[in-house]
Amino acid sequence: MKIQATFLLIAAVVICLAAHGLCLANPKITRCRCVKVSSHFIHPRKFQHIDIFPQNSYCRKVEIIITLKDDAKICVNPQAAWVKKVINILTERK
């Protein structure tokens, strides 16, 4: 009887965690990456690379993270005019 109660308790905990997505979800992507965004112009010569993360179930906004050559990461506003121009130029090259 004691083993059955223990098994029942463990099963209940696993079901609760699964219902909240804690068992299956990657904890690194369960929220937006950018807390604060910048609209200030950053010259493309300083870029190392750009990461664009579309909307998903964890974050309801598009996020653009620019990694600079000194490894600093900056979240930029995807609605800023200069960001749109940079993205258009990069997509035209491909």
Results as ranks from 00 to 15, higher is better:
C59E: 10
I66E: 03
I50S: 01
E63V: 03
R60H: 11
C32E: 07
K69D: 00
S39L: 00
D70L: 02
L17D: 02
I42N: 04
M1N: 15
Q4L: 14
K69F: 00
F41C: 04
F41V: 11
T30E: 12
K73N: 08
A12H: 07
A12M: 09
V86A: 13
A72N: 09
R33C: 03
D51H: 06
A19K: 05
F47W: 06
V76E: 10
C23F: 04
H20E: 11
F53D: 05
H43E: 08
C32M: 02
L24Y: 12
H40D: 15
D70G: 05
I50A: 02
K28W: 07
A80I: 10
S38E: 13
A12S: 12
F7I: 12
I10T: 03
F7S: 12
I74F: 03
K94Q: 15
Q79K: 13
C34F: 06
K84W: 01
E92Q: 13
N56C: 09
H20K: 07
M1Q: 15
F53T: 14
V76S: 09
R60N: 08
K61F: 06
C75W: 09
K85H: 14
M1A: 15
H20R: 10
I64F: 08
I3V: 12
Q48N: 13
I65K: 03
I64A: 05
C75M: 05
D70A: 00
I29K: 10
T91L: 08
A25I: 01
V76M: 08
T91K: 14
L22E: 13
N88L: 13
A81G: 08
P54A: 10
Q79M: 09
K73W: 00
H49G: 00
K46P: 00
R45S: 15
I42P: 09
